[in-house]
C-alpha cells in the first residue's frame, strides 16, 4: 500500500532525495507528492520526515527515527552468489560487489561498502534471489 504525504509537508526535499525508487517529486518549499504506482512501502520517507507529514500504507502517522537506529543489511557470504541484483536496487549506492583480491578472484560478494549512505529501505533483502541479505540492528 503506497505511503502518503500530508499537508504538514514543508517541501524540505529530504524524502525525495532518499526515496530508493525515485517515487517522490515536487517543488522545493511546497508539498511533495508520492507516486502511488511506484511506491514500494519501504518506509524511508516516514523515518526521515522531520515534520511528521508522512502516513504509511495503512494511514498511520510515521515516526521519525534517528539515523543511528536505522537497520543495515548484513550479507551472508556463504550464501551470497554475487549476482548483483541487490546492487541494481540500491539507489543510494551503498552496496557493491566486493573487489577481487587477486587477478581472477571469483569469491566476491555483495558488501555494504558505504554504510553511511544506506537508507535502510530493505529492497536488497526483499529482492535477493537466494535470501543472503538480512537487515539487522547496528550495534553501537
Amino acid at each position: 500500500m503506497p505511503y502518503f504525504i500530508t499537508g504538514d509537508c514543508n517541501g524540505c526535499t529530504a524524502c525525495a532525495k532518499q526515496c530508493p525508487v525515485l517515487a517522490i517529486d515536487g517543488t522545493p518549499k511546497e508539498r511533495y507528492v508520492i507516486n502511488i504506482r511506484r511506491c514500494v512501502s519501504c518506509g524511508v520517507c516516514g523515518r526521515i520526515c522531520p515534520k511528521g507529514a508522512v502516513l504509511d500504507g495503512h494511514g498511520s502517522l510515521c515516526r521519525s527515527v534517528p539515523r543511528s537506529q536505522w537497520q543495515k543489511p548484513v550479507v551472508d557470504t556463504k550464501i551470497c552468489s554475487a549476482c548483483g541484483i541487490c546492487v541494481t536496487w540500491c539507489r543510494a549506492e551503498a552496496l557493491r560487489i566486493s573487489l577481487p583480491s587477486f587477478h581472477g578472484d571469483i569469491h566476491v560478494f555483495a558488501e555494504l561498502y558505504e554504510p553511511n549512505k544506506c537508507v535502510s529501505c530493505g529492497l536488497c533483502e526483499e529482492n535477493c534471489p537466494v535470501g543472503a541479505i538480512h537487515l539487522s540492528e547496528v550495534r553501537a
Binding site: 554475487a82 549476482c83 548483483g84 541484483i85 546492487v87 541494481t88 577481487p100 587477478h103 578472484d105 571469483i106
Partner: peptide, 12 residues
C-alpha cells in the same frame, strides 16, 4: 586492473 562481470554472473 581486475576482472568484473555482467549482472548476475559468477564467472566474471
Amino acid at each position: 586492473l581486475r576482472n568484473s562481470s555482467c549482472i548476475s554472473c559468477p564467472i566474471r
